[in-house]
Design a protein around this nucleic acid. Sequence first.
DNA 1: ATGAAAGCGCTAACAA
DNA 2: TTGTTAGCGCTTTCAT
Lengths: 345, 345
Amino acid sequence: MGMKVTIYDVAKKAGVSIATVSKVINNNTGNMRESTKQRVKKAMEELNYHPNIMASALMGKGTKTLGLLVPDISNPFFSEIAKVIEDRAHEKGYSVIMCSTDENEEKEKKNVELLQSKLVDGFIVGSTYRDKSIVQNLTKAGVPVVMLTQDDPVIDVSKVFVDDFKGGYEATIHHLQNGHHKIAIISEQRALASVKRTEGYLQALKTYGIQPRQEYMVRTRGTIANGIKAFGNLFQLPEPPTAIFACNDQLAIGVMLGAKEKGIKIPEQLSLIGFDDTILARATYPRLTTVAQPIAEMGKTVVDLLIEEIRLGCSKKERILYNPELIIRETTDKASKPDHIAKTE
Amino acid sequence: MGMKVTIYDVAKKAGVSIATVSKVINNNTGNMRESTKQRVKKAMEELNYHPNIMASALMGKGTKTLGLLVPDISNPFFSEIAKVIEDRAHEKGYSVIMCSTDENEEKEKKNVELLQSKLVDGFIVGSTYRDKSIVQNLTKAGVPVVMLTQDDPVIDVSKVFVDDFKGGYEATIHHLQNGHHKIAIISEQRALASVKRTEGYLQALKTYGIQPRQEYMVRTRGTIANGIKAFGNLFQLPEPPTAIFACNDQLAIGVMLGAKEKGIKIPEQLSLIGFDDTILARATYPRLTTVAQPIAEMGKTVVDLLIEEIRLGCSKKERILYNPELIIRETTDKASKPDHIAKTE
DNA sequence: ATGAAAGCGCTAACAA
DNA sequence: TTGTTAGCGCTTTCAT
């Protein structure tokens, strides 16, 4: 009972031609006798027939599969959004192949090639491609691509992302309003989003007339381990910062862990803000103040957009910008010594 | 420059037949002139040719794609192991399609069907299937399947998992050794692994001559929210437990959050142990004592096993059992009032 | 050592 | 309304 059942078996069983079966499969039953249709359907069920997607893909009908490229699936931000993407895709009859590129150039290229050979109808690119030509070649070849998270002007496709500048700005303003002057930023090395967040950070400082300091601006990969390291370096400075804006929650957790180890109290001695609002932000104690991205919305939108472009056969080149939201929890507080002001009080 | 280049284009350019090109693609160059081979290779490169996997799949060569079914990709345990699986698969030239089944029966069935149509060469099943026939039909149809995490005797395939009984036993013994008598367990409703962990829990109690109490045994879905709820219920008991064994880290985090809210101190007033040793266990404060699964090992093994079965064309039906390891961190401590013993001291 | 030709399971004109 | 047939791009005997 292991033999694969094909369209021929169904046709024979239903006493029709394979063309008729094909029409039933594809719902081209415009002018087909209802009885015929039913007979075919019954035969398909009885034989437990499932059309071979490969064969229809060969005919240019696509594979009903989406490729999802993320820099690191073990980062909760990406695993959370991957879940949303996968759900939405399935709702629409698509499956998704996911690749973690690990910010590794070779892997980036290999992953795309792996998915390319028509295995995939379109790509959602959440990774930070150093070699832009990888993505550019895709679009040049007519493969639908939507970028997630990165608003890279060099790559001319639809994009779904939050206003990173605003997120960085608001986070920093919050520190500032709490009386902090010595505010550090830990940003993700390769992420374009982090560049924007840094610009927001700088703008906020400027608004308050504060000169940015090079030693307060750390760039690194966005892992917990690097957050710990970054904190260690910042903490060793002759004048350590009293507040930190970490460009993702993992880095922020790293800071919390590092601070804990050194006996630095958060938020009493160090105010901290993360970015993403992943599960991590709620799981820590104290709970992390962070800039939320609308993960559910973004995931859903990026899928809908991509599928639409697949159907249309061309890119709509939309730039869908979401609003980040500062979620104030327990890692931020007033500066304990608001400098000169404190002295006069 | 957008036209797809086929084997015919390569053949024409190299001045050979498509059969020859095919041989080069598949490395059947046993008795082929080296010069011919090089000519073909050069043509392939110059045309940037990539074989169409669909077409070769149609010929029964497989898709070089693995299906991964997990109950919930946003659970760090699964996203962490998914990353490992994906890495290993890519190393071996396979891609992986991932589906979150969300412990939803309909989705389970739909996901499998989605992947079935020969889209996938084999399955890694990490989900808890209520309807066993879904997986059974797969193996009956000759599709390679390896189970991950669940050692279900009803399903006769290879399996990769930890000794859940031992994990549950050791966690509970640790509580017991700390002088706790009132130990609750929060287990995952549908996971077979949780059943085993519960058995270990019961065995440990028995060893210490402690009668299990029904009200200390909570079963629920393994999310943070449910952890909070479960703690709430346990806490309302006339005699609340002084220690909790949560069957995954997410539940444990929920307990921590719930305890925080009610002002219950961990570990002073409540000892807590989780399971999995995900990032969550290290991100919380205090850091979570938990039972570690060797995620990296397990992920690698399950891929290797599946690919081997795909190549062999038959199931090896191995049961690969890993050792869980209790990682003692900061959420467990001696019972503050070791009952009658405390009184005499 | 290389090539011709028959499919793999399906779709889409075009016939009937 | 239904069936015939020519491919889609590739692999694989079997000839040459």
